[in-house]
Design a protein around this nucleic acid. Structure first.
Lengths: 150, 150
DNA sequence: ACGTTATAGTTACATATGAAACCAATTGCA
DNA sequence: TGCAATTGGTTTCATATGTAACTATAACGT
């Protein structure tokens, strides 16, 4: 019979809100990994990501690195500047196209990669160890779906 | 019989690396939601998160907001400064403790909340629509586990 | 060939973020 | 009490990030 004086505002429950939960989880995990190498090697997360794709694909251009890392080209440009300066990445100019750079890890870059990659993998295993086999499979399947046509 | 000249560097495959996949997914989703309100209402993601918890819990202090949003206190302090300045949040001083603030949404804040919250929920639904019932249940269960004892 | 348009990458600027120093009020305890 | 340690919150500084403007080269259409 009575109108409520205060309307129902239906506030979001952040702790059950998927985007929020994903954000917390993702940040926690990425930060844990980054803590392993940031101060120790003076290597930022963006730099590490660039190194990781160059470890997999030699000779990429900066634009291709940007595509593969899902970073924007400015971020890649800056990360590369530091990596080249630090002698971790070699940069040459593409033969038939002077705009394009041809990138690859240097000896030092490979050494660093071979130290950091196992740490990153170990952290991933720590996370996955919280799940059982079923859950791990579902998680993969779910991520495939959600990442598919974002 | 022959030693390989180049050792096996076992590069990370980013596209199968859980932390990386989570990061991409989380950023994509959060950014899609933020795009709905950032320019339209001149509201940053951090400000929105603060508003969201204040919608659920009236009278929190800044520290409590920081806990609930998983943001650090500097970020909260700055978001609050802007929100108070914009008249979206009321800030009083706690009765028995002059250090502590007592926060809550203003009328304007509630109005804004009631516009943004449904948009955020709609985006969440869009994401979840890519999954079937089973997958949604597993996802919740998995997130509960992973977020449990991070 | 030549002007327009597109592409690779960098630079500049404005804003966001995090760590540490800082101030004020409160608590603990000798 | 009174003084050291703690806590809530802000400010400062150094760094990171995104957008837009810019430079240089290459591709395209006539």
């Amino acid at each position: 019979m009575s109108e409520p004086k205060t309307p129902d505002h239906a506030p979001l429950e952040l702790e059950r809100f998927l985007p929020y939960r994903l954000s917390i989880l993702s940040n926690t995990i990425s930060q844990t990994i980054a803590d392993d190498y940031q101060k120790r090697y003076e290597l930022s997360m963006t730099e590490w990501r660039v190194m990781a794709v160059l470890a997999r694909f030699e000779g990429l251009s900066a634009r291709e690195v940007a595509e593969r890392t899902a970073m924007d080209k400015v971020a890649v440009s800056r990360a590369l500047a530091r990596l080249v300066e630090a002698g971790r990445v070699n940069r040459q100019t593409h033969d038939g196209d002077k705009r394009r750079s041809v990138l690859g890890l240097s000896e030092d870059g490979w050494r660093l990669h071979d130290e950091v990659a196992p740490m990153a993998r170990a952290r991933e295993r720590e996370v996955l160890a919280k799940l059982d086999d079923d859950e791990r499979q579902w998680l993969n399947r779910i991520l495939d779906k959600l990442l598919g046509s974002s």
